[in-house]
Simulated assay, not measured.
Amino acid sequence: MLAVLHRSVPDPRGWIRIDGDRTNPARHTAPAYPFDPPDSSELPRRLYPLEAEAAVAALAVMAEEWQSEPSPVRSRPDLNTVLADARTLLDRYGPTARYWTNATAAASDPAPDFVAAGLQGTGSHGFLTSEYLNGLDLLDDLGLIAVNDDEVGVFWSFGAY
């Protein structure tokens, strides 16, 4: 997972990676930008296991905007479509996939209701850089990690000013 955050490994299926920050000069200051990944010894304190349907819900709410969300996923008429799309993405990892999140709601419950909470109601352990680079201040994040025997998927949502 850390190698994915640092973008130091290719997709195991050879799929093209979408990396909008690839040429961002912020990478010279913070190579994993926008992340500041913790040491591996910190991961057990910052990540919590999720049940599969909670992982789907976490990914679905990443479709929301962090600031001034006009229509949270929970109130959208296409809620079932958004959930189906999230399920399709996670199906790549197969039925034996395991999931983790940095959302603190999962610390005591592996099936928090992310859809009801929405992004703004979901606290998390930050994996973001604290560097103020290129006029962008990163404030909030929600991450989902999917793991199977062959690969790791990292999905993240950022709130910024």
Rank of each mutant, 00 (worst) to 15 (best):
V56M: 01
D19H: 09
G143Q: 03
A84F: 03
A116R: 13
L142G: 07
D39P: 06
R17G: 02
F114C: 06
T129G: 06
E131C: 11
R27E: 04
Y33Q: 01
L133E: 03
S71D: 11
L79P: 06
P110Y: 02
A55G: 10
D140A: 10
A111P: 00
T29M: 10
G20R: 12
Y48M: 13
H125L: 02
L83M: 06
V73M: 08
P49G: 04
Q67E: 13
D149F: 00
S108Q: 08
S71P: 00
S108P: 00
T104P: 00
R76T: 08
L138S: 04
N148Q: 07
R74H: 05
T104G: 00
E69W: 03
A105K: 01
Q120I: 10
L43W: 04
F127E: 00
A107E: 14
A86S: 15
R22S: 14
A106D: 05
D39C: 09
T23L: 15
D21S: 07
W66R: 08
L139D: 14
W15F: 08
D85L: 12
L128H: 06
G118C: 08
S41H: 12
P37L: 06
E42K: 12
V147N: 05
I18E: 07
R17S: 09
N24A: 15
D78C: 07
Y93F: 15
D39E: 15
L59I: 02
R45N: 14
Q67H: 05
G135P: 02
I145A: 05
E69D: 15
L89R: 08
D19R: 10
L119C: 09
W100N: 00
A111C: 08
Y33V: 05
L50A: 07
E69N: 14
W66T: 04
I18R: 12
L59R: 13
W100Q: 04
F114H: 08
Y93A: 09
N102V: 03
D36C: 09
D85R: 07
R45L: 14
Q120Y: 00
G123C: 06
A26P: 03
A32N: 04
T88R: 14
N102C: 04
E131H: 14
D21I: 00
M62R: 01
E64C: 09
V61G: 08
D141K: 01
P38G: 02
A63P: 00
R27K: 15
P34R: 11
V82F: 01
P95N: 12
A107P: 01
V73I: 14
D113G: 09
E42F: 07
T101A: 04
I18V: 13
D78W: 01
T96V: 06
H125T: 05
D85G: 06
N24V: 03
E42H: 11
H28V: 08
R46C: 12
P77S: 12
T104A: 02
I16K: 12
S108G: 08
T88S: 12
E69Q: 14
L83C: 07
P34V: 10
E42L: 11
M62L: 10
E53C: 01
P49Q: 09
G118N: 06
R22H: 14
T88E: 14
T104R: 01
Y99A: 05
P49W: 02
E42Q: 15
G143T: 09
G94A: 04
R98C: 07
L50W: 02
A60I: 02
R76D: 07
D140H: 15
A116T: 10
T29W: 01
D91S: 13
L139C: 10
R46V: 11
G121T: 06
M62G: 09
N102H: 04
T23R: 13
S71Q: 11
N134Y: 05
